[in-house]
Design a binder for these strands. Sequence first.
DNA 1: CGAATTTGACCAAT
DNA 2: ATTGGTCAAATTCG
Length: 374
Amino acid sequence: MENMGEWEQRSLINELTQGRELARQLQVYLNVPSSSHETRELLVQKIQASFEKALSMLNCNTSLAVDQPQPSGLAIRMSESPPSRSASPRSEDSDRDFKEQELKFDASKKRKTLPRWTQQVRVTPGTALEGPLDDGFSWRKYGQKDILGAKYPRGYYRCTHRNVQGCLATKQVQRSDDDPTIFDITYRGRHTCNLASHVMPPSVLSENQEQGTSIDPQQHNQQEEQTQKQSQDLLLSFRRGLKVITQDLHIREQTYPSFPNYPSSTRSNIKVENNVVFSPSVMNNNNVVGNLSPSLISPATSGSNYCSVSPSPSGMSSTHMQGNVNFPTFVPQPAEIIQASTSATNLPTVGLDFPFGNAEFDPNFTFDNHGFFS
DNA sequence: CGAATTTGACCAAT
DNA sequence: ATTGGTCAAATTCG
């Protein structure tokens, strides 16, 4: 834990402070009759966002910042889930899927599969974009398959830099049967490539850049990976302001030290609605994440991310930059993130759960941000 | 021309 | 034998 860099700590403090400040402001506004409802609403949102961010930092260490233009609505619901079946709201297929997962889980010894979790992403109708989701990484499609019982084929993607950096992350994208605007995205494995935080300001980059690819994929401890990953995705999603519904966070891993408290409480559909609107000020700690990828268009792929780590400054390899390097402005759609996963729900209680889940720190969790955002 | 996608074949897990 | 996942040649894209 010494690893928790000073930077993280500061960010955290910063975030909390920010939240406090916002709350204070809210209080003020509450006493000012003339203040608009909207303003207050906005403050509330900010506060929520602030907390979420702080929590995510704690839980996930990911210091990825969530930065989002101004989505109008996010709903997050999370829980972790051993796919107890009955997970997805709408398709029974997913149900089937979960079953499979479950089975595999039990049969554990067989194949060590990479951690895997699913999220549903909905592209807001009305906006013509049909495609999904660009979650911040650059993916390359390597296959497509018709799935039994599913109307739409499932697309298989792997990290573009797989060969170069040995990043084993893959994802599967499948459009929901009944609601074409929803895509189930199952991620597997964590990105070991430099998740590049995209194109970020050189200044920031320079700081950690040395790390480059040095991260040995195999070395990571899984737990960490998952956590990290999860947060990565989430955050990314946030940033893009898409509607994301994470349905199942099931992760199975062989070596799973323990995930002690994944609060099972979750199942109580907790939805945290937050329309997160980050003000620049709030965001400052994470410039790292500064940009969103604009694209979110192709249904399954949008290559918009950069995992690359080109050591060489000039190195951005020609290609993947699909033109999005400008971050701002892109304001996708209102997003809604719902993480659901059914889990061992037993809890009677409605625990409070935050989007980022477990308020638990993994014992072994270390901030390995180094390579992470470099 | 190189990189990304498509698509049928191949392989592994039920 | 069936189904899901990956490979890889062919094709398309930029």
